[in-house]
Design a protein around this nucleic acid. Structure first.
Lengths: 247, 247
DNA sequence: AAGTGGTCTAGACCACTCT
DNA sequence: GAGTGGTCTAGACCACTTG
């Protein structure tokens, strides 16, 4: 009712900076799918003209969205909606023998369509009892098991993965999620904690039961903010290492 | 020879952006102590005039230094050289009973002037055998021991702390380092790993020997890039937790 | 050569802080 | 009110990418 289209001048907010209002307006259009992940936005000069602001102001708005991780700009090419997160590998938390940056092999041990327990529902931000896809996944480096992952995905988003041939699955899940389900993981929150492995977990990793382990609990979100994955990854605590720089 | 003073126009570099060259020039003056930590830089308009660039270009240079953590700008007040790091508390890695954000009490168990072993020398980036101050420090929350820290400081920087009354020491070290030794901790690198406590460490924390522990190894630097502290903090692995957001 | 984002300029005006 | 940083404008020009 108020704004007939995105062509409306963006200045409604009183205390708000113009570039911030512009960034919000653009974010809405991105989230709505006007420019899908990987595609290009119009040139900054066009966007500036369209919104009737100076070029510098539009640049400031786009800068904001870059900081927020929504888009990326490439000199000479254009402005693009980001495909998904980078650096999300669990291996950045561990130092296993090889030392190389290889992608670990993936072996799906269990795939089941189930209904969400209260814990899973809380982790995924859905209602208890809703259908989810449950995965148990072993990861190996040089044929040595190194990580064991338990994962839950909302079934409505991942139906194509519920019954297909597991042999066709990729070692990296997120690109496969995007290709086959149109789900782009855009943000992830990892919570690191310490504990002891259960007998089953330890057996998969060829460690004694009760061996100290690090558990990384991840919630992953798409660009609408919906939680699309909840997983816990476990590995030998002695292989854990992580570096943080404070400034 | 080439540049008679900082008033010289900064454009010597061919491929370099002007604002980047300006930022470097300002960084040199800050590190040289022309504006000590906590003090204000001249107004951006003055700096721009002094270097004969447009205001916007100087703003861009200052923005860079803000990103690098060298300075901070406060609207209406001015531009200041940063005093030191924030969020450097080891407690951000642990969840102890209390839950509050209290500063833990500090108890120095050992203070000794010694010569650096090869390991300590490597950690501090000094020569082996150089004099260092060695500290063993227990930290307590609600009178409960929670963390045990082993620390080495280059003695030439911290001489005032070698022989004074320990009763006068503060619970927070970095502000005391700045006040009493003029050492401003500007950057720190924390490396997290898991292991088992020695009997002595465990005893201080009232835990059984061999109890699983988290070891946080920190190297801290001043704004000249010199390493001014090397420490390892240990705590109960079961109290460890840390959250990382990926975008 | 055409189109993109990135730099730099010059100046008006706004918002915040202190006295 | 004087001084500070923050916003916005309008336009010239540079650097990178692609056809």
């Amino acid at each position: 009712m108020e704004s007939p289209s995105h062509l409306a001048l963006v200045d409604s907010a009183p205390g708000m900076r113009r570039y911030a209002a512009l960034a919000n307006a653009l974010r809405v259009r991105v989230v709505a799918g006007e420019w899908p992940p990987g595609s290009a936005l119009p040139a900054e000069s066009l966007l500036a003209a369209e919104h009737q602001v100076a070029l510098g102001t539009m640049r400031r708005a786009l800068e904001l969205l870059v900081e927020q991780g929504l888009i990326e700009r490439i000199h000479g090419k254009g402005t693009f909606v980001r495909q998904g997160i980078a650096g999300g590998s669990m291996l950045r938390f561990f130092r296993f023998g090889g030392g190389s940056n290889e992608v670990p092999q993936s072996r799906i041990l269990v795939r089941k369509s189930v209904t969400a327990t209260t814990a899973v529902a809380r982790g995924l931000g859905i209602g208890p009892g809703e259908p989810v896809l449950h995965l148990l996944r072993l990861r190996l480096l040089a044929s040595q098991p190194c990580l064991i992952e338990e994962m839950w995905l909302p079934l409505d988003l991942f139906a194509p993965l519920a019954d297909d041939d597991l042999a066709g699955w990729d070692d990296l899940l997120y690109p496969m999620f995007a290709r086959r389900c149109g789900v782009h993981v855009h943000r992830a929150v990892d919570q690191i904690g310490f504990g002891a492995m259960t007998g089953a977990q330890a057996a998969q990793l060829r460690l004694p039961a009760g061996h100290p382990c690090v558990a990384v609990e991840r919630s992953a979100y798409d660009l609408t903010g919906r939680c699309v994955e909840w997983r816990t990854t476990r590995g030998d605590a002695n292989a854990f290492h992580y570096t943080i720089t404070i400034t």
